[in-house]
């Protein structure tokens, strides 16, 4: 079963534990600026929103790469940057409509979320459940349940 990150911004407090966990997983240091997942503080609306790559099926980054450095991990469904092949041309950063693949000046390569090989550090570090790792085909399950309860006015009236 493929899994995916489920992000629920309403639960996020903006603490950046996910950013630290991500950079630690990749570089053994706490460096939010290098994190593949970022938290946005929309101050004027009192909202905190974590955001990262959603692992597109037809990934723009992958198709744009001129040296085939971005490849599919079939078991996880992730699009993975192979550092040994990446030439740092950044075409993928232009192609990605979502901005979730970015250049790292220290390595000279691009970096994106690869779900930590199936055990994403951000989800483990999140203290509020704003980031979880769930069945990729059921990311709408919680919302469906919520609306199921709301929609069912008939039996609700009977209990």
């Amino acid at each position: 079963m493929q899994r995916a990150l489920l992000i629920l911004p309403e639960k996020c407090t903006g603490c950046r534990q996910c950013e630290m966990a991500c950079s630690f997983e990749k570089d053994r240091s706490f460096n939010p600026s290098k994190s593949r997942i970022r938290v946005f503080d929309i101050h004027s609306q009192a909202r905190f929103i974590p955001y990262t790559c959603t692992q597109c099926s037809q990934a723009w980054c992958l198709h744009a790469c001129p040296v085939d450095a971005i490849r599919v991990d079939l078991s996880l469904g992730t699009k993975v940057v192979h550092d040994s092949l990446c030439v740092g041309c950044k075409v993928c950063t232009i192609a990605c409509p979502f901005g979730t693949i970015n250049y790292n000046a220290d390595s000279g390569k691009v970096a994106k979320c690869d779900l930590c090989g199936g055990d994403p550090a951000c989800a483990k570090a999140c203290p509020t459940g704003a980031i979880t790792y769930v069945d990729a085909e059921q990311t709408g399950y919680g919302k469906m349940r919520h609306w199921a309860v709301k929609t069912d006015t008939q039996t609700a009236a009977q209990v």
Binding site: T13, C15, R16, D41, A46, F48, P127, T128
Partner: peptide, 19 residues
Amino acid sequence: LATNGACFGCTIACGRISR
């Protein structure tokens, strides 16, 4: 109270954001 908010790295998040 609009929401609570955390400082960097804080898993308590006592901060008040008011409207």
